[in-house]
Amino acid sequence: MLKLDHISLKAGDFTVDDVDLTVASKEYFVLMGPTGSGKSLLVKAVCGILPVQSGTICIDGNDVTDLEPGKRQVGYVPQNSSLFPHLSVLDNILFPLKVRKLPKKKAMSNIEPVIEALGIGSLLSRSTVNLSGGEQQKVALARALSFNPKLLMLDEPVSALDEPTRCEICGLLKRIQQDFSIATVHICHNLEEARIVSDRIAVIADGRIAQIDTLKNLMDKPKANVVKKILRLAD
């Protein structure tokens, strides 16, 4: 579903260098690494917000490296949810469909399953400003799923939440990913989060991929110190 081929990019002084990775369709892929390791930059590059210096990004077999963000069919949930404060919850969720000029009736029927799956029916008329952190993330997820994207990119979607809410949302994310059969890339630096959601994990440090494998294999055979450190296996 997603294939990154020798991706290099630069933001200020920081460089992400020669990243290769593949995410299968229907796979829940977790990108782990310490703060400032380049995880978010990589996600932004896949979403088209940040240009790459070299390499290619393929989504569903199509080269999207030079495609503008809106044409990549990627649902993006940023760290702070980034809901539009001037729109209600419903208008936020309908926003991508309004952009695509879908009639309101068709748009409403499109978002119904998403709203039901996330259990946010009671929030629709509310302003986004007064929502709790967990509710905001659910609405942001609904908005990202509303236009049936091929790929879901979640940039630390639960890092700002308290522990019980974090576990609840992680469980929800995994269930949604399975229900909608959508390839998902989830950034985190929390082992518990990765344990709940991941099919495979890539550990990234200093802008380079250190190891990609299932959590079990990473735990059993860590290939680098940074992997041990991230998985809390280091002495």
Partner: peptide, 26 residues
């Protein structure tokens, strides 16, 4: 907030639509 504009871009807006529907209202 530039992140709101980025979100709009990934949701399918062109640069001009982002300006019209997100930046100007905010």
């Amino acid at each position: 907030d530039r992140r709101l504009e980025h979100a709009a871009l990934t949701l399918g807006c062109s640069q001009f639509q982002t300006f019209r529907w997100v930046t100007i209202p905010l």
